[in-house]
Amino acid sequence: MRALLVVNPAATTTSARTRDVLIHALASEMKLEAVTTEYRGHARDLGRQAAESKDIELVVALGGDGTVNEVVNGLLHHGPRPDALPGLAVVPGGSTNVFARALGLPNDPVEATGALLDALRSGSQRTVGLGLAAGTEGTEDEAAPARWFTFCAGLGFDASVIGRVERERERGKRSTHALYVRQMLRQFLDEPNRRHGTITLEQPGEDPLSDLVLAIVCNTSPWTYLGNRPVYASPQASFDAGLDVLGLSKLSTPAVARYATQLLTSTPERGPHGKHAATLHDLTDFTLQSKVPLPFQMDGDHLGLRTSVTFTGVRRALRVIV
């Protein structure tokens, strides 16, 4: 088997020595080409090259959720063809690794490499669904290119928090759960739309859902992790179904306290609920419209401002080795 290993050298939880050990372990079982990413979007370009190659059967992403997202978008540049495209394998190296953990992989990169080798020997794989989003950005309503996401997207408050975290990381701060909590509190204090939401969810044949402050779109469950604790925004979300949405129409201090508590105590059976929480399950096509440009994120990557985003849930989009 010929495989391409895409390595993010800035991966949060792996050292250069650990990455060398993992590369040697993988190379012992396959004909491996390892490429270290050098710029933002490089992993996407490598994924596209692998998809267009005649002989690469597997692409392994060694990095966090952002690296995985880029590789997936490269692999699916010409659309989903799970039986014709190289399979995807993931070795988690980021701070959270939601996609890998949602697939049931160990969060430790060495253990995950062992699990990957076992899966390759036994031929264990599955085909997962993904989300596809396209919309208009900024204040000029310019078209934004369609982009795939593996586990979540968000418009509004949660994307604002991610944007704040990214700015702190650019200043040299480490990506920690404490950093996310601090930026969430600061965003809450600065949030201009927390009492009067600007987002409307529209889907064919259904009444619109209006005045949302935030909308979280989930392709799987959990939504994220706080350390080892899974957090369930949409507990029914699944790689085998369409997309789920959690919308909140109010972020007053009591409402935030209530929903934060519900998220921290969420389970696979129960997530946030209440008068100002709306949950939708297994959607295939819908649009989020905002009266004002709002921050937008996909797979934990802040993508700027959007006024409209159209989502499509695509079943059986990608073959994954697990």
Rank of each mutant, 00 (worst) to 15 (best):
A178Q: 09
A178Y: 09
A178H: 09
A178N: 10
L179P: 04
Y180K: 00
Y180M: 00
R182K: 00
Q183V: 04
M184W: 11
L185A: 12
R186K: 10
Q187R: 02
Q187V: 10
F188E: 07
L189I: 13
D190F: 10
D190L: 11
E191M: 05
P192S: 04
P192F: 01
P192G: 01
N193F: 10
N193V: 04
R194T: 02
R194V: 01
R195Q: 13
R195L: 14
R195W: 13
R195E: 13
H196Y: 11
H196R: 11
H196E: 07
G197T: 02
I199K: 06
Q203P: 15
P204I: 08
E206K: 15
D207E: 15
S210N: 14
D211A: 08
A215F: 09
I216R: 10
I216T: 11
C218E: 12
C218A: 14
N219K: 14
T220F: 09
S221G: 10
W223Q: 11
T224E: 00
T224D: 00
T224M: 11
L226N: 10
G227D: 06
G227V: 06
N228E: 15
N228A: 14
P230A: 02
V231C: 07
V231D: 12
Y232Q: 05
Y232C: 03
Y232P: 05
A233P: 09
S234K: 12
S234N: 13
P235I: 03
P235E: 03
P235T: 06
P235N: 02
P235R: 04
Q236V: 10
S238F: 07
A241T: 09
A241V: 10
V245P: 08
V245D: 08
V245Y: 13
G247N: 03
L248M: 08
L248Y: 09
S249Q: 14
S249F: 12
K250G: 14
S252G: 08
S252I: 03
T253V: 15
P254I: 11
A255V: 01
V256K: 01
A257D: 08
R258E: 13
Y259F: 14
Y259M: 00
T261M: 15
Q262L: 07
Q262V: 01
Q262Y: 06
L264H: 08
T265P: 10
T265H: 15
T267R: 00
T267F: 05
P268M: 09
P268A: 05
P268Q: 03
E269Q: 12
G271C: 00
G271E: 06
G271Q: 04
P272V: 07
H273Q: 15
K275V: 14
H276P: 04
H276E: 14
L280C: 08
L280S: 03
L280T: 05
L280G: 03
L280F: 12
H281T: 11
D282P: 03
D282W: 10
L283S: 04
L283F: 07
F286P: 01
T287Y: 14
Q289R: 15
K291E: 12
K291F: 12
K291H: 12
V292R: 06
P293W: 08
P295E: 01
P295L: 02
M298P: 12
M298A: 12
G300S: 06
H302T: 07
H302K: 04
G304L: 06
L305G: 02
L305W: 03
R306S: 02
R306F: 05
R306M: 04
R306L: 02
V309S: 00
V309T: 02
G313V: 06
G313I: 05
V314L: 11
R315F: 10
R316K: 14
R316D: 11
